[in-house]
Design a protein around this nucleic acid. Structure first.
Lengths: 138, 138
DNA sequence: ATCTTGACTTAGACATTGTCTAATGTAAGA
DNA sequence: TCTTACATTAGACAATGTCTAAGTCAAGAT
């Protein structure tokens, strides 16, 4: 993630303070913040950053394939910096905690040709749902 | 779907005109309307029906397991009356068309125990994405 | 058949999430 | 240092969903 800014500069991005702090906030594994969470955390580092800039920057990072958009709850979209390693998500039905997980096998292969209706199927998103250890205990 | 109202009455539901038309709108296969689409179609049958009632009724039907909530685009949730037959969704990346599909095998089994992090995994939702025949042709 | 009552519906305010615009600011090459 | 195209800002606006208080009505009781 640290070379993200370099990659982006190579693509013609201007390296502004705002884009730096958004990248900083998204640094790390198992990060699944909403846009407004990103904005709140970015504002701790750069108080005058606006919501619009955060939304713009997240949208651009998604277009560039640097982060993934995840919507596991039908509410706010979340942003997952772990976009360079294929993975799926495991979500707690109670508290909403999200874990990155790695199912085995070819998830596309289990959809038979006669169930494709002429689509050119390109991608699969899987959400596993269940109770996390914390919520099970409570 | 026609005996849906009977089932609901058995559960203590009052059979109001509003609930009848919502059930009527959701009748059929391959139906994936948003709440506001349901409201618009219901209002053709019962002009004075309010948005709140449609939202309430849809929420109740979801709680009762009679319909499924689907959010394939991070925008409005869609409601799928085909809740009694396990299935997944195939979505056109271009036009958003949704098809019900039936992958083979056990979708839960491909998540190894060491990738479950102590969760009691109960359900899987899969979204296949690709281009539909219409959009491919265009 | 009518009455009664608690569940249901309504309009519209409000909340959340996301998008857009016009004015201003600034990174980076000249 | 200057220039300028790109980026940022505040806030209006849009889309979707939730909530409340007042009125309505389905269905059991009489």
């Amino acid at each position: 993630m640290s070379d993200l800014l370099e990659r982006l500069r190579g693509r013609g991005w201007r390296l502004t303070a705002q884009r730096r702090v958004v990248a900083e906030v998204l640094n790390g594994d198992h990060v699944h913040y909403t846009a407004d969470e990103v904005h709140a955390k970015a504002a701790e580092l750069l108080p005058e950053i606006s919501r619009a800039t955060v939304y713009n920057t997240l949208g651009e990072l998604v277009s560039l394939g640097e982060i993934m958009e995840v919507s596991t709850d039908g509410r706010a979209k979340r942003y997952d910096p772990n976009a360079h390693h294929a993975h799926q998500h495991l979500v707690c039905s109670q508290c909403g905690t999200i874990r990155d997980v790695h199912p085995t096998g070819d998830l596309l292969a289990v959809l038979p040709a006669e169930e494709r209706f002429g689509f050119q199927v390109a991608a699969v998103e899987v959400t596993y749902r269940g109770m996390c250890p914390n919520c099970s205990a409570a």
